[in-house]
């Protein structure tokens, strides 16, 4: 519940920040605005389990929104990942992770439909843990930890307004195991 509220809030505020960037033109006064962009997708990555022997897959659900300027794209991304609960009937632990990143992306056209891009992002993530024991449940929110990321990939314009992208991503945060974390992302959305 709290996390859902946070997610919405984070998303709305990232949009607000992006919007204010657009309005003020402070970041790059000479940039011409080409239009808005929004997309959904996931960035699959692997992290080590507690034994340090096995890798487990993370496939967060991600939402992006922002603006496309003539020089670069600026957008916010919110990702949400929930681990499945493990334990016994009596005791168990589950966790959810909310990550928000601000991205700057520069594209290089290859053809009318394809472009290559490189992107730089930074933001934070927060883990929420649910612990239950014999009927008692605790929900704890961890502190926000910094995340930095770089990404590179290909954009494919499917129609005039619809665009898909595939990207490889390297992101780093102190609690990541392994750190940095490698991911493969796929997004689809509109870009006007």
């Amino acid at each position: 519940m709290i996390l859902a509220w946070l997610r919405t809030l984070a998303f709305v505020q990232i949009l607000l920040v992006s919007f204010s960037v657009f309005v003020s033109g402070l970041v790059a006064p000479s940039l011409a605005v080409a239009g808005t962009m929004a997309s959904v997708g996931t960035t699959m990555s692997y992290s080590l389990d507690t034994s340090g022997r096995n890798y487990e897959a993370n496939t967060p659900f991600s939402l992006r929104g922002g603006y496309r300027f003539s020089l670069a794209d600026l957008y916010g991304e919110v990702s949400f990942f929930s681990s499945k609960s493990s334990g016994t009937e009596m005791v168990g632990v589950s966790s959810r992770d909310l990550e928000f990143l601000f991205w700057g992306r520069k594209s290089f056209s290859l053809s009318r439909s394809f472009a290559l891009f490189g992107a730089l992002g930074f933001g934070g993530h927060q883990e929420t843990v649910k612990t239950r024991y014999a009927g008692d449940t605790y929900l704890d929110e961890g502190r926000i930890e910094a995340v930095g990321a770089v990404a590179s990939g290909v954009q494919w314009r499917l129609t005039k307004a619809i665009e898909a992208s595939l990207e490889g991503r390297v992101s780093a945060a102190e609690s990541y195991a392994p750190n940095p974390r490698f991911g493969l992302g796929a997004f689809i959305g509109f870009a006007l």
């Binding site: 080590l48 389990d49 507690t50 034994s51 340090g52 681990s83 493990s86 334990g87 005791v91 168990g92 632990v93 966790s95 883990e127 929420t128 843990v129 612990t131 605790y138 704890d140 929110e141 961890g142 502190r143 609690s175 195991a177």
Partner: peptide, 20 residues
């Protein structure tokens, strides 16, 4: 790889069952 979060009060909370 023990995984924890630190709650607002500073308590370490194991964030998975194996760590717990």
């Amino acid at each position: 790889r023990g995984r924890y979060i630190r709650s607002g009060s500073g308590t370490m909370i194991p964030s998975n069952y194996a760590t717990l």
